[in-house]
């Protein structure tokens, strides 16, 4: 395509040069007579140029620039912190909504429940089933809000709205349970 355009451009230049040299090969005078006067001939050529300009300008807009974007290696690759997804959930406004946030709330509760079961198991040296039963019965902590938060199937409206704060409290309770376990020392 570019070669065709280049050939056409070259031919136009040659014709232009020939016409200025007064050659009879280019019927400039006949074309001017046909149009009425020479200005209209120039205007017609200018019109063709203007049309071509519209196409060329449209295709040459800045967003059509096609240049390589070099990488930015100055800073290290960043990764999320372990446990970071819980922080994202706790800062989400949807978590407090009764119906819309139900799925997200259950995910948070499941995760906290699993952590509580694992930690009860460690701290009390019991089986997973026993630990799960303690958490399900709310017997694993003296904190009623936290115990009910993990034990109840359906949260009350108040607990639903307060989910982020109770979840944070649950983490603290699980941590304190773990601290008592670590005081007993590692087993393996």
């Amino acid at each position: 395509m570019r070669r065709v355009l280049a050939a056409l451009g070259g031919a136009a230049v040659v014709l232009g040069l020939l016409s200025t040299a007064g050659s009879s090969l280019v019927p400039v005078a006949a074309a001017a007579r046909a149009l009425g006067n020479d200005y209209l001939l120039l205007a017609a050529i200018g019109g063709i140029a203007a049309l071509a300009a519209i196409a060329a300008t449209a295709s040459g807009r800045a967003e059509r620039m096609n240049q390589a974007s070099t990488p930015d290696p100055e800073g290290p690759v960043t990764v999320p912190p372990a446990g970071g997804t819980l922080d994202e959930s706790l800062s989400s406004w949807q978590l407090r909504l009764p119906v819309l946030g139900a799925g997200q709330r259950e995910t948070v509760r499941d995760r906290l429940r699993a952590a509580a079961v694992g930690t009860v198991r460690r701290s009390e040296g019991c089986s997973r089933t026993e630990a799960a039963a303690k958490v399900a019965d709310g017997e694993w902590t003296d904190d009623d809000h936290v115990a009910r938060f993990l034990a109840e199937d359906d949260l009350s409206v108040v607990a639903t709205v307060r989910t982020p704060s109770i979840a944070r409290r649950t983490v603290a309770v699980v941590e304190s349970l773990e601290a008592s376990e670590s005081n007993r020392g590692e087993v393996t």
């Binding site: 446990g83 970071g84 906290l112 983490v171 699980v174």
Partner: peptide, 8 residues
């Protein structure tokens, strides 16, 4: 809390 839970 998330990071601390990650440790647990």
């Amino acid at each position: 809390p998330g990071r601390r839970l990650g440790q647990v």
